[in-house]
Amino acid sequence: MKRSEIPSLDDLRAFEKTARLGSVRLAADSLALTHGAVSRRITKLSEDLGFKLFEKSGRGLRLTAAGETLNLTLGRFFTELATTVEGLRAANVQQNALVLSCEPSVAMRWLIPRLPNFHSAHPEIALHLSVGGGPVEFRRDRIDLAIRRLDFGLPDAWHVQRLFPERVGPVMSPQLVPAFASGEYVALGSKTRPDAWSHWLSIHSSVPRPTEIRFYDHHFLIVEAAAAGLGVALSPMVLATDDIDRERLIAPAGFDPDGSHYGLIWIGETDLSGKVHDLARWLKAQCKMSFG
């Protein structure tokens, strides 16, 4: 069959809808057409193809053998078409949106609570958040900006602006302060920095040692566990600052810089512009408000 001989898509849709719903009336309602319009389209399709698609069955209709075969093909066709269109729409949205990559704990504990302010200030910018740590696959993942702790090697082609220094200290619920002072506390550490407690305790020799150290997979877990009273978490300040402001957590020993920094990373032009510049400027302002 030549392309010019392929039946009208409107006729095919009317047939497929009727076959799927089992009723011309229901198909008409679904397509926002009249009963007569759907019937005419099915009749025309049958005439164009040269074979019957439906036959009477009592007061209703049933598919002929040829109609069954055509309906199976059309079902696959319309499903694939819908999937393709949806994928293209999603890709178009992705291309027109900004994608910000951020380490999971920082995203959950610090960035996400502030994003409503960004959307209010920049309703014209569609921002997608991607979480990840370490090296960034900018082109593969279509990432525009990334927030990372700068503890890994960066290619020369990457551009970096420092956001704030990493500061670390023990945080706990107010009820655990006496236990922390007496050494009757469980230390909570992250598996991503297994030596952090040993290093901190070696610097703070006057602080009583914990009864044990328990490790969780991520920093955001130990901070939440500390707030629940399960122990004392050695936490980056960025993850605990909001709970400290709300007095859900306290940091009696303060926070010490560990020599590393968080930074904003991108590739391409040295100077940011347009929507990416607006996002970077907003992020730097939020960091200044949180960490001075």
Results as ranks from 00 to 15, higher is better:
Leu249Cys: 05
Asp48Lys: 05
Trp158His: 13
Leu31Asn: 02
Glu166Gly: 14
Ala14Glu: 03
Ser173Trp: 01
Val99Cys: 13
Gly60Phe: 00
Asp11Val: 11
Cys102Thr: 06
Tyr262Leu: 05
Thr270Gln: 15
Tyr262Phe: 10
His159Tyr: 04
Asp144His: 10
Leu145Met: 09
Ser46Cys: 07
Ser198Gly: 15
Thr270Glu: 14
Phe51Met: 03
Leu21Arg: 13
Ile6Glu: 09
Ser173Ile: 07
Leu45Asn: 04
Gly50Asn: 00
Thr73Asp: 14
Val207Phe: 05
Glu80Ala: 12
Asp151His: 03
Glu55Met: 08
Leu272Tyr: 07
Arg281Lys: 04
Arg246Ser: 04
Gly87Ser: 01
Leu272Trp: 06
Phe15Leu: 08
Pro174Tyr: 09
His122Trp: 04
Ser190Arg: 00
Pro170Asp: 13
Asn117His: 07
Leu31Phe: 03
Arg59Lys: 03
Glu80Gln: 14
Leu239Arg: 00
Asp151Ile: 01
Thr43Met: 11
Ala225Asn: 07
Ala227Val: 01
Ile250Met: 12
Ala66Leu: 06
Ala179Glu: 09
Glu247Ile: 01
His122Ala: 07
Ala233Thr: 02
Leu21Glu: 11
Ala253Ile: 00
Pro236Asn: 14
Asn71Phe: 05
Leu63Val: 08
Glu247Asn: 04
Ile147Pro: 01
Leu26Thr: 06
Tyr262Met: 12
Gly169Met: 06
Met1Leu: 13
Gly183Trp: 00
Leu72Asn: 13
Gln161Asn: 12
Gly231Asp: 10
Asp278Met: 10
Leu272Glu: 12
Trp158Leu: 13
Leu188Val: 13
Arg89Thr: 15
Ala225His: 03
Val93Ile: 14
His261Thr: 01
Ala227Glu: 09
Ala251Gln: 07
Leu26Trp: 01
Gly60Leu: 06
Glu47Ser: 12
Ser39Leu: 07
Val232Ile: 14
Ile143Gly: 05
Arg40Leu: 11
Asn92Phe: 07
His219Glu: 15
Arg281Leu: 12
Val276Gln: 12
Val177Leu: 09
Ser273Gln: 13
Val232Glu: 09
Lys44Asp: 14
Ala14Asp: 03
Arg3Glu: 15
Ile6Gln: 11
Gly87Tyr: 04
Thr241Gly: 02
Glu224Asp: 15
Ala179Val: 00
Leu63Ser: 09
Arg40His: 11
Val232Gln: 10
Ala253His: 02
Asp195Asn: 14
Ser57Cys: 14
Leu230Asp: 14
Gly133Met: 06
Asp141Gly: 08
Ser273Ala: 15
Asp11Thr: 09
Ile112Trp: 11
Arg109Lys: 06
Leu188Pro: 08
Tyr216Glu: 15
Phe78Lys: 02
Leu63Asn: 02
Ser39Asp: 06
Pro210Lys: 07
Val207Ser: 07
Lys288His: 14
Leu115Gly: 11
Leu31Pro: 04
Thr64Arg: 00
Ala19Arg: 01
Trp282Asp: 15
His204Val: 12
Val93Met: 11
Arg109Trp: 04
Val106Arg: 00
Pro178Arg: 00
Phe152Pro: 12
Leu74Cys: 07
Arg25Ile: 09
Thr84Glu: 15
Glu86Gln: 12
Glu247Arg: 03
Glu269Leu: 13
Asp144Val: 08
Lys288Asn: 13
Arg281Thr: 14
Arg114Ser: 10
His218Ala: 15
Gly22Gln: 11
Ser39Tyr: 10
Pro174Ala: 02
Leu115Glu: 07
